[in-house]
């Protein structure tokens, strides 16, 4: 029995189906990322788990107990919203104490001790008397996180927690959130549209598209063996090409550029080159198969003396090929 079981959840807004028979089991202590493009239903799923939204059908079990009909207040979930929703008229400390006073199983004494404890955990203790707008984006984010974990929630729900931050802060906070989550051992569901975030942070990833779950698996499984073309295309970059009526897919970095004397599968004329730092991307057209991208290390690119219009020889290692039936694409 999983810690959190989401069974057959379906939700419609007006006539649009936002969630279509979604099933998902979450184990105690793991961090699950729900990954998908905007409008795929991932935030609605999170809100249903949180009890802020009602499913049209299906149920949510926590510890084997049906909590589909439980109000958000009774579920004991901590939530961090995309906008953080920090109360602007309260200090960092005030924001955290706002919810603490209500915890039935927490005495006033404990509440007063709890706040500094979580503030130290997110490294904000020295900023406790500041107001939200006096904080940087990352500090605001951590305040929202502190507020959510102050109540010792059974489950932490993060809705696009890093999307409002700039790239540097984002990658730093990824590690921090992961560290805190590990330290507390709290089961966490995080919704994101950022594949890099999902790959680096998640124990397991749930790929969603158009109201349905496309695939559930560890980051490695999802990256190496995407179950559907959507999953393949959404996470990382994927080349698709047609091979005798069969759709084949391969990651750009798995394609090998080999010498003319070695065994190769295709020849390709280089259309353009893209220097990306450590890697160099080679764009070209395979005859009758469409455009393709090959990533090689920039050193190799230099060694090969690549330039536009040159002809190169490609090998597609069979173990790296993924095959889809044509109907899936």
């Amino acid at each position: 029995m999983s810690f959190l079981e989401i069974k057959n959840i379906t939700k419609r807004f007006d006539r649009q189906t936002v969630l279509d028979a979604v099933n998902l089991n979450i184990e105690r202590g793991e961090l699950v990322c729900v990954l998908g493009p905007s409008g795929c239903g991932k935030t609605t799923l999170l809100r249903i788990v949180a009890g802020l939204e009602t499913a049209d059908s299906g149920s949510v079990f926590m510890n084997g107990k049906d909590c589909t009909y439980m109000s958000a207040a009774k579920r004991n979930f901590g939530i961090v919203f995309q906008s953080y929703a920090l109360f602007p008229n309260m200090t960092v400390l005030g924001n955290i104490l706002f919810g603490l006073g209500r915890k039935k199983n927490l005495s006033e004494e404990d509440a007063r001790l709890r706040a500094p404890e979580v503030l130290r955990l997110v490294d904000l203790y020295e900023h406790k008397d500041k107001y939200p707008r006096q904080l940087s984006g990352g500090q605001q984010q951590r305040t929202a996180l502190a507020r959510a974990i102050a109540l010792s929630p059974d489950c932490l729900l993060l809705d696009e927690p890093l999307s409002a931050l700039d790239a540097k802060v984002r990658s730093k906070l990824r590690g921090e959130i992961r560290k805190i989550q590990h330290a507390l051992g709290v089961t966490t569901i995080m919704v994101t549209h950022d594949q890099e975030e999902a790959l680096t942070m998640a124990d397991r990833i749930v790929v969603m598209n158009n109201a349905v779950v496309e695939q559930i698996g560890t980051p490695r499984e999802i990256y190496n063996h995407p179950a559907t073309p959507f999953a393949a295309n959404f996470i990382g970059t994927m080349n698709f090409y047609n091979h005798y009526g069969e759709t084949r897919a391969i990651r750009p970095e798995k394609i090998e550029v080999v010498g003319r004397t070695e065994s190769y599968d295709f020849t390709m004329r280089v259309k353009s080159l893209e220097f990306k730092g450590a890697l160099t991307g080679i764009y070209g057209l395979l005859p009758d198969m469409g455009e393709i991208l090959v990533d090689v290390s920039s050193e190799q690119a230099e060694a090969l003396g690549l330039r536009e219009n040159a002809t190169i020889f490609l090998r597609m290692p069979p173990e790296c090929l993924i095959k889809y039936s044509a109907t899936e694409v």
Binding site: L52, A73, K74, F81, F87, F98, R147
Partner: peptide, 23 residues
């Protein structure tokens, strides 16, 4: 005002009345 103020309060078990008066 942020639409999620109410959601945050609800998830923390803070009654709506208190959110109304304090926020």
């Amino acid at each position: 005002l942020d639409r999620e103020f109410e959601s945050v309060s609800e998830s923390m078990g803070v009654p709506r009345r208190k959110t109304f008066l304090r926020v």
